[in-house]
Design a protein around this nucleic acid. Structure first.
Length: 576
DNA sequence: TTAGGGTTAG
């Protein structure tokens, strides 16, 4: 009687608060064996990812006294939950924990962990899980077998995927689609086409896979004609097409299909918002964001990133605090925080690091490499080198971006030796430098006055197939100018393959001021005046140069010109 | 099995 009543409530249990109450009752009434239903229900009804739910279920699993078969089921539910919410690293971690506790895997756990390995391109763990699947007799299960096809397809081992596929006695459409995915990923479109034609019951996913491969390649004419030809379209079909146009920066076409789409979901809205983000159209992104009725965490993430990436850092932080205050119980995660940290870092609010640190600890957020990279940037700018280097050394995989963040930080702080050794390290590891890397490296040499090293570095850019940008020239001019080599700096500007910008001429003007050189000061200033709408700062700087060499009349003339044009010296100028 | 959110400069 008690059992059936508890079971009834368990099946009604949808929220974490209720789950906790019910669990207490199960313990009091010694009905521990019903825990697995509780775990299943709680996870099943948790639509959005919730760290609290994960922690709660983990606690139950750790103290659970239920039998092995129930354990297998409950752990499998949690492993699947993590995988469904794209927490792939954690999925693998939890699976290993389960395995180490001597709990045999369920087919759910196995398919989830195989999927996670595929998504993370983790072949080493993937093959060892394959071995475990064989050992625990799960390889006769079509879902697990299909999971293996998916794993090897994703990792580019198409032969192994084909072998796993051939081993399946009763193939379902998902098995076929996984193989199709493999051929598409490996770029073998002919074989993919043959597989597609052979699928006995093509479903909407089969079509979507083919369309998606064209859309990813940027071949929108084929993507679109297939889209129009498919018998039944799902929201994913529309989103794939819209995403394809977004990738080609064809925002107008993307918008046309978005507007025509019968059933938009959050993916559609986010695809559009992030498209506008990349094309710098914050206003359109904002409009869509405002129109949305049910905003989930990913929508907030997209909009925060939109502000952060387009120079509206304060708006990013405002939206973040709204997200924290909102009654929708949306919890920020490492993805939200990476944008928020970046926004603070650009604003120069380096004290934010302390706040984030405590937030991360309190909420059990997993620091991944991308969040680490934005924290590295923040700490380097704050001059907290120990913390930055610690985070950098702890990265799972150091890449161009993380190295560049470090080198950039060294550049800002004039640490040329450190910048140089980081650069050498990344070259040794065959990590390709990019424009940002060289901006950091050059500014390190510039700040430390190492002209010779700077030149060498600047000239070496072509060895990495990189063309120096106007900014790189600007740093070189600044470096040469500071060293008093004004003529050389001027020659360098004249040799530029692109139009020099105000930053480049500004650097020469600044250097002319440092060395009281009227000749180059005048040249530089005249170009700055041409290029900027408000030239008052430059003119005033030139007047100071005249004054410093005793040419009072010229100084007065320049100031009079400024008066005439009703120009007032603007306080502070970025390059001064 | 397919579709959505993040990190380095300016």
């Amino acid at each position: 009687m008690l059992d059936s009543r508890l079971r009834f409530f368990l099946h009604k249990c949808v929220a974490l608060g209720q789950a906790k109450q019910l669990h207490a009752q199960l313990v009091v009434n010694r009905r521990d064996y019903l825990e697995s239903i509780l775990v299943h229900q709680t996870l099943h009804f948790t639509k959005d990812f919730s760290r609290n739910v994960v922690n709660y279920v983990k606690r139950i699993l750790k103290v659970s006294t239920t039998s092995k078969s129930l354990d297998t089921f409950s752990w499998g539910c949690l492993v699947r939950f993590l995988s469904q919410h794209r927490k792939f690293q954690e999925t693998v971690g939890l699976y290993i924990e389960m395995h180490n506790s001597g709990i045999p895997p369920s087919s759910h756990a196995m398919t989830s962990v195989l999927r996670a390995c595929g998504k993370m391109e983790n072949m080493i763990d993937g093959t060892s899980f394959h071995a475990q699947a064989l050992k625990s007799g799960l390889c006769g299960c079509v879902y697990v077998q299909t999971g293996l096809v998916g794993l090897y397809s994703r990792l580019g081992y198409i032969e192994m995927a084909k072998k796993a596929f051939d081993d399946i006695a009763e193939k379902n459409t998902v098995s076929w689609n996984s193989l199709l995915h493999g051929y598409l990923e490996s770029g073998n479109l002919d074989e993919a086409r043959r597989v597609f034609d052979k699928i006995p019951a093509k479903d909407v996913v089969s079509w979507n896979l083919i369309i998606s491969s064209y859309a990813k390649k940027g071949d929108m004419s084929n993507a679109c004609s297939l889209f129009l030809a498919m018998p039944l379209k799902s929201p994913a079909s529309w989103n794939i097409l819209i995403g394809g146009y977004v990738n080609c920066r064809e925002m107008k076409l993307a918008r046309t299909y978005f507007d025509a789409m019968p059933q938009k979901n959050n993916v559609s809205w986010i695809t559009m918002i992030s498209g506008y983000t990349k094309s710098g159209d914050v206003q359109s992104a904002e409009e869509l964001f405002r129109q949305m009725s049910k905003k989930d965490k990913l929508v907030y993430d997209a909009m925060i990133a939109c502000y952060a990436q387009n120079g509206q850092q304060k708006d990013a932080l405002k939206l973040f605090s709204q997200m924290l205050e909102s009654n929708t119980c949306i919890q920020p995660d490492e993805i939200t925080l990476s944008s928020v940290v970046a926004a603070n870092s650009q604003l120069g609010d380096t004290s934010f690091g302390t706040w984030v640190e405590s937030y991360i600890t309190e909420h059990g957020i997993q620091i991944d490499d991308l969040l680490s990279t934005s924290l590295i940037d923040l700490y380097m700018k704050a001059g907290d080198f120990d913390k930055a280097f610690k985070l950098f050394n702890d990265l799972n995989k150091k890449d161009t971006v993380s190295y560049s963040a470090m080198i950039m930080g060294c550049g800002i702080n004039g640490m040329a030796t450190e910048a140089n050794s980081l650069f050498r390290e990344m070259i040794e590891k065959k990590i390709p430098p990019n424009q940002v890397t060289f901006t950091g490296l050059l500014s390190a040499y510039s700040h430390s006055g190492s002209v010779q090293e700077g030149y060498k570095c600047f000239n070496s850019m072509k060895d990495y197939n990189l063309e120096p940008s106007a900014d790189h020239y600007g740093i070189m001019v600044d470096m040469l100018g500071r060293a008093g080599r004004l003529k050389e700096a001027y020659e360098l500007i004249k040799s530029m393959p692109m139009q020099p910008n105000a930053g480049v001429w500004g650097a020469l003007l600044l250097a002319s001021g440092l060395h009281n050189n009227v000749e180059f000061g005048e040249i530089a200033c005249s170009h700055c005046v041409e290029l900027e709408t408000d030239p008052s700062g430059y003119l005033s700087y030139l007047a100071n140069i005249y004054t410093s060499v005793g040419r009072w009349d010229d100084a007065r003339k320049v100031r009079a010109t400024m008066e005439e044009k009703k120009l007032r010296k603007t306080l502070g100028c970025s390059w001064i």
